[in-house]
Write a protein that binds this DNA or RNA. Structure first.
Length: 442
RNA sequence: GGGCCCUUCGUCUAUCGGUUAGGACCCCAGAUUUUCAAUCUGGUAAGAGGGGUUCGACUCCCCUAGGGCCUACCA
């Protein structure tokens, strides 16, 4: 049974193979990971994607056919002999050619053996790649690749070729690491007189240090972006922009991306993954996101992080959300930015604020408290008006009451503008915090 | 070692023979200011190197250098 999977567009003819399987996982788990990723990214074909397994055993008939046609042969080299031949070929800077390629199997043909492809010694194999253009491979540099292992199991290059043909795959779009495999696969297609599918080899995404993406770089699977507090639309937008572009457009919708996309615009060189830019794009999508949706996502992110919010804090965060989402780069920033609202009385004041609580300071704060008490309605607008009216009445600048008020309300934690901070706290909590400060011993 | 791919600001990219080489992120400065952000304005910053072809090259060709992929009885 093969390890790789296919997705088939419902009723369509587009087949998608998930080529790189994780051998540590079972097939069912691998399918689940793919499903989860697609679901989180909100990527769907028309309707639900349907996965189906390749037809087992197709390759066996193909190998028999290949042998009959003289394109494959049984190779009786032992594993050690094979290793030695490989080393020798490499030392001489040439491709491996099996000594069995021209020998006729004798009576004892059932001895342990592998089946290899009889790669032509001359000529070249040409791939018309959708993103690379014409790529030529001299046949003399291609090994007599193994088709069937000693235990009869098909190798990757044989299996995908048979599967793709069997399932009518028309386009093979995959990572650049498979470019040279395209030549090996093309050899089999040609030997079987099958039509070649369209190949398109995309550049790889590298880590921020330029090395191949790995666990060290933070994100290997889509789910990790979710856990780090990224919005699916932001990830989609960023990823689409990596290795592809449409003029100067940076922020665009899925519909626009779909309308604009053309393989010919895919970049040829590998791109580095840049979290700074992902953050900027994520910040943009957080800013324009619906508050209720954002709240649900943030709560979910906190739970995943293992720091779920308590009932009362949830209410407080929701109230502060519209005010703090402007500055958030990820969902995980939200609770941090709303930290001032999540504190509980009595607040521990920072030194600067404590120093500002002089007799004069307290007196002024007291007058402001009286002005705020009973304000109806308690909204950002009315609060803003009240604050402006207060400084005008006192004949002072904001600088003479702002820092003190903020310090008293937040204990020194950064917060939005004062009117917003007061609103997020709500009347009772805000006045309570002011009272705590006023009753503080000098 | 061999084959193949790639090479524009630090990063993602635009340009597709004639541009002051553009945009975005990052960074810096200024503005704003009641903190931190955010926001606004402005700025620094690039065609790997060398040969050609051409009136003219980032754009086409060759070489070199650097990076990547493959070179498995892995996928």
């Amino acid at each position: 049974m093969f390890n790789w999977l296919y997705a088939r567009h419902c009723g369509g003819q587009f087949l998608l193979r998930i080529e790189d399987t994780d051998r540590a996982r079972s097939t069912e788990e691998a399918v689940q990971v793919i499903f989860d990723s697609l679901e989180w990214l909100e990527l769907k074909w028309d309707g639900a994607p349907v996965f189906q397994f390749a037809r087992a055993g197709v390759h066996q008939g193909v190998v028999r056919e290949l042998i009959d046609r003289g394109w494959a042969f049984r190779c009786y080299m032992s594993a050690e002999e094979s290793e030695a031949a490989k080393a020798e070929a490499r030392a001489e800077g040439r491709a491996l050619r099996s000594p069995w390629r021209d020998r006729t199997p004798e009576a004892g043909a059932d001895l342990p053996h592998v089946v290899r492809f009889k790669t032509p010694t001359g000529g070249e194999t040409v791939i018309e790649d959708l993103v690379r253009g014409t790529v030529r491979f001299p046949n003399k540099d291609l090994d007599d690749l193994i088709l069937l292992r000693t235990d009869g199991a098909p190798t990757y290059n044989l299996a995908v070729t048979c599967d793709d043909h069997d399932m009518g795959v028309t386009h093979v779009i995959r990572g650049e690491e498979h470019l040279s495999n395209a030549a090996r696969q093309a050899l089999i297609y040609q030997a079987m007189d099958w039509d070649l599918p369209q190949f398109g080899h995309l550049p790889l995404i590298m880590g921020e240090d330029g090395a191949k993406l790995s666990k060290r770089h933070g994100a290997q699977s889509v789910g990790e972006f979710r856990d780090m507090g990224y919005l699916p639309e932001a990830v989609r937008n960023y990823l689409a922009r990596l290795g592809w572009g449409h003029g100067d457009d940076e922020i665009f919708s899925d519909q626009q991306a779909i309308a604009w996309f053309d393989v010919k615009d895919v970049t040829k060189s590998p791109a580095r993954f840049d979290f700074a830019k992902l953050n900027a794009i994520n910040a943009h999508y957080i800013r324009i996101a619906d508050d209720d949706r954002l709240m649900a996502l943030a709560l979910d992110a906190m739970v995943r992080k293992g720091e779920p919010l308590a009932g009362e804090d949830e209410v407080r965060l929701r109230r502060a959300l519209p005010l703090v989402k402007e500055g958030a780069k990820t969902l995980l920033d939200l609770p941090a930015l709303a930290g001032f609202a999540l504190k509980h009385r009595p607040l521990k004041l920072d030194d600067k604020t404590a120093a500002r609580l002089s007799p004069d300071g307290k007196a002024r704060l007291q007058r402001l408290r009286e002005r705020l008490d009973g304000l109806e309605p308690w909204s950002a607008e009315t609060l803003d008006g009240a604050l402006r009216g207060f400084v005008a009445e006192e004949g002072i600048g904001f600088g003479e009451i702002g820092p003190l008020l903020r310090g008293v309300l937040t204990g020194g934690t950064p917060s939005p503008d004062l009117a917003g901070t007061l609103f997020a706290l709500q009347c009772e909590e805000a006045l309570g915090r002011i009272d705590d400060a006023l009753s503080r011993p000098a």
